[in-house]
Simulated assay, not measured.
Amino acid sequence: MKISKAQLKNVTFLVIIVLLLIPKTRQSIQILLNKGLALIAPSVEKDSNQKMLSETDYLWNLQSTSGALLHFDDLKGKVILVNFWATWCPPCIAEMPSLEALFQDYKNEVAFVFVSNETHETTKTFLNDKNYSFPSFVPLTEYPKLFNVSSIPRTFLIDKSGHIVIDKTGAANWDSDKVKQTIENLLAN
């Protein structure tokens, strides 16, 4: 019995569907699929489309997994990367290696604010297991309305003046030359 290409495709598709239905394999497959999507660098907003943080948007308080308080208004005048994420989110997990690489390259020049609504224990365990060194925070007050986070991952790159230069929902390649050049330009201004 010879199997046609069409039959092979159908069987492969059926196997993937079955694997997605099994809880133990679902997240791994979703992460793998999202890693493919995370190969693409995020788009930079045109100047005319850039939104700007207002004074009230900076009135946001967070607490790090180590217990340190962060007042978002202390970051005014800096280049800021804000990432909303969760340990259970496959697209978040898929983009984490590129965010960690970007953090390693710019941790002394850019303020990185990784925000999760999960407990400190949950995020700390996840970060330690994956050997990620970027800081994670839990919001103590409501996040700025301008962010309008309805799905994760959601990442914002903000210039020194408070303009949102990149607004990306979904996984992306944050360690790309395009993102690095954008950051270099923002740091130079």
Rank of each mutant, 00 (worst) to 15 (best):
F103M: 04
Q63K: 09
P153T: 14
T122Y: 02
G77A: 11
L127Y: 08
E55K: 08
Q181V: 10
V113W: 10
E55P: 00
N61L: 06
C89L: 02
K5M: 04
S64Q: 04
I31M: 03
S150Y: 00
P153W: 11
S176A: 15
I152D: 03
N61W: 01
P23R: 11
V11L: 06
L59D: 12
K76N: 02
L75D: 04
A101D: 10
L157I: 15
K145G: 02
T155C: 08
S43D: 10
L20C: 12
A38Q: 08
E45K: 13
I29K: 09
N128Q: 11
I164G: 15
V115E: 09
N185H: 13
P42V: 05
V79E: 09
I16A: 14
L59M: 14
G77L: 10
C92F: 11
K180W: 06
T123H: 02
E45M: 08
A6T: 15
L127V: 03
E184R: 05
M96Y: 12
T169L: 01
K168E: 14
L20W: 02
F13T: 14
L62N: 09
S4C: 09
Y132S: 03
E184I: 06
S151F: 12
H163R: 02
F72P: 08
Y58H: 06
T122V: 02
I22L: 14
S54F: 04
I29E: 00
V138S: 10
L70R: 12
T25I: 13
D57H: 13
E142N: 07
M1V: 10
C89T: 01
L53N: 04
L69W: 02
W85V: 05
Q30T: 03
D74M: 00
S161P: 01
S133Q: 12
S136N: 08
D175S: 03
N189F: 07
T125L: 01
L157N: 06
S150C: 00
I183V: 13
F13S: 15
V110F: 04
L127C: 11
N131A: 07
A86R: 15
I164K: 14
V44Q: 08
G170A: 06
L186Y: 11
I40Y: 06
D129K: 12
S151P: 12
L146W: 00
F112C: 06
I31W: 09
K130Y: 03
V44C: 05
L32G: 07
L37N: 14
